[in-house]
């Protein structure tokens, strides 16, 4: 344990209202603590400068998966286990379901939350590519009310969020109606479980016979943030994938991502894999 435990405070507010009040009255002093699967790892490694935390784990308002006519909404505290057990998510948002089942292992999935995954803002996080593909929106809540923002653009840069320090992520909203899109997900992390992504690829396309009418592509671990590959999408949108078109899209993807060398992998490998998975995605559309 590389942190001095007596320094840290973790308090449990009785209600959402009290939690929001604390966040508002002492701005920047308190930070939410949900499942702890990121925070406790940082604590162990001595990398947790923040010292005061509010335990939000038990706040019912931030839990539960709700389906309305237009949206499916997930409370920020929804765990990976809850996501993968949910039948609607499995049917309509299979990429999210896959991401949840390929995250960590059972114990991590029982504690890790979607809100925490978003707020932690790791470029290697595995739900954000799925969320970007589904045009997710976030509902943010504070003592002053709620606001709703597109998830695309919520991460402004490495670990930089469009989130005020008195706000919590309350819910994640996913627009329905994409069941007929072709969907593709692949996480590349060397081993089959407990793996941090070296590249994570999520794609979905609406096909009009062999033509790609519309599509979304998103990748993790290839840039300072999880990326929506809009330039690549633009090349493919409206066209039928031919080898030449796929090649052009791969080139565009190569320009759009900015992978790096780190202790887990190399920039060269990440680039190649991203491009190869793009090709695999395009092939899957032709099939």
């Amino acid at each position: 344990m590389k942190s001095y435990i007596p320094h840290y405070r973790l308090e449990t507010p009785r209600s959402l209202g009290e939690a929001l009040q604390r966040l508002a009255s002492e701005p920047g002093v308190w930070k939410p603590f949900a499942g702890g699967t990121d925070l406790m790892v940082l604590l162990e490694a001595g990398k947790l400068p923040q010292r005061r935390f509010l335990n939000v784990w038990n706040l019912p308002e931030l839990r539960g998966i709700i389906a309305t006519r237009t949206h499916v909404s997930l409370g920020a505290l929804t765990t990976y286990s809850e996501i993968r057990r949910n039948a609607i998510v499995e049917q309509e948002f299979p990429l999210l379901s896959r991401a949840a089942s390929e995250t960590g292992s059972v114990a991590t999935q029982n504690r890790g939350t979607i809100g925490g995954n978003i707020a932690n803002a790791s470029p290697a996080a595995d739900t954000p590519p799925a969320l970007l593909v589904y045009d997710a929106e976030l509902e943010l809540i504070s003592a002053h009310g709620t606001r709703r923002v597109a998830f695309h653009g919520f991460w402004r840069g490495y670990k930089q969020l469009d989130l005020r320090n008195d706000e919590l992520i309350a819910r994640v909203h996913l627009p329905r109606g994409r069941q007929n899109w072709r969907q593709f997900y692949r996480k590349v992390g060397t081993r089959r479980a407990q793996a941090i992504s070296k590249v994570c690829f999520a794609g979905a396309a609406q096909m009009d016979a062999r033509r790609i009418a519309d599509l979304r592509i998103s990748l993790g671990s290839v840039a300072p943030v999880v990326l929506r590959a809009t330039a690549t999408e633009n090349i493919l949108r409206g066209l039928t994938p031919t080898p030449a078109l796929v090649h052009a899209a791969q080139e565009a993807l190569g320009r759009e991502i900015a992978p790096i060398d780190d202790i887990r992998s190399t920039a060269r490998y990440r680039l190649r894999v991203a491009q190869n998975l793009l090709a695999e995605f395009c092939e899957s559309l032709a099939a």
Binding site: L10, G36, M40, W57, A107, R111
Partner: peptide, 10 residues
């Protein structure tokens, strides 16, 4: 759960 990742307060 992994008990190394659960703080006592929870």
């Amino acid at each position: 759960v992994n008990s190394c990742l659960i703080p006592l307060a929870q």
